[in-house]
Design a protein around this nucleic acid. Sequence first.
DNA 1: CTTTAAAACGGATTCGTTTCGATTTACATT
DNA 2: AATGTAAATCGAAACGAATCCGTTTTAAAG
Lengths: 141, 141
Amino acid sequence: MNEVENAIEVLKTNGYKFTDKREHILSYFNQENRYITAKEVQQFLKVKYPNISYDTIYRNLYTFVELDIVEETELNGEKLFRLNCSHSGHHHHFICTACGKTKKIEMCPMNFFEGQLNGCQINSHRFEIFGTCEQCALPVK
Amino acid sequence: MNEVENAIEVLKTNGYKFTDKREHILSYFNQENRYITAKEVQQFLKVKYPNISYDTIYRNLYTFVELDIVEETELNGEKLFRLNCSHSGHHHHFICTACGKTKKIEMCPMNFFEGQLNGCQINSHRFEIFGTCEQCALPVK
DNA sequence: CTTTAAAACGGATTCGTTTCGATTTACATT
DNA sequence: AATGTAAATCGAAACGAATCCGTTTTAAAG
């Protein structure tokens, strides 16, 4: 079972309906292995559904996030989404600011200092490294 | 020399002018030891300068960021600013999502895995922990 | 086939942020 | 103290991402 089929399964078992649009959004995520914007999703869907509404895009994106199908971050005041790959364990990302591609970072730094924050309730954390990947790194020498 | 005077010094040595508004923005930052929004800055300055423009707020905030007087982050699509405290060494923050207060985290996790990203050029990183501080933590028991 | 709750439409609205021409101001120089 | 000028500010408009809402369509259960 591939990622898309799997995600659709998750939708169904959580009482959400199957729709062509959801399938298309998911397969777009699957084909782009990187963080994409809501606008990119909208423009992709526009080809097949010229009247697609932003409401549809955002509602579905947030549904996906809620179901852990998609993960979300933000950069320069813009939200970014990608297929969640945390089924292979909690981890973080290196994000290429040129092409948006990501690499898994095989470590979560949270373990190292939870002791430093006694009395605080930790709800979430954000750990991301930005730069340019091998392909995008300028050959400036 | 306090933080505000110091920041004004930095402005001057970089060829920026001294203005009342800049001084007020800086002393507001100094009095609020936390991340604040551009709107909060605007509302603070409004008391003394009823016609203060957002242009002035943002231009100065970004000038401060450029001069490392202020540091910037974003949460929920909104930009947040606070006086830069990295003169006491590179570090990261726990950020209380209720009151905006921050706590230093005495460790930078970057050291631990730079080896994992061969070929990539690392330009920046983001490491933040979110939750509620002692004062804001709900006494839910 | 019928029903109905979920999903989508589409267009308006909100809100943070950015922009820009005109005006004012800080401050170095005379 | 007066002048010149580059920097700073104003005021208001524009922008773009995100959200909202009444109406219509649709998936899929009965």
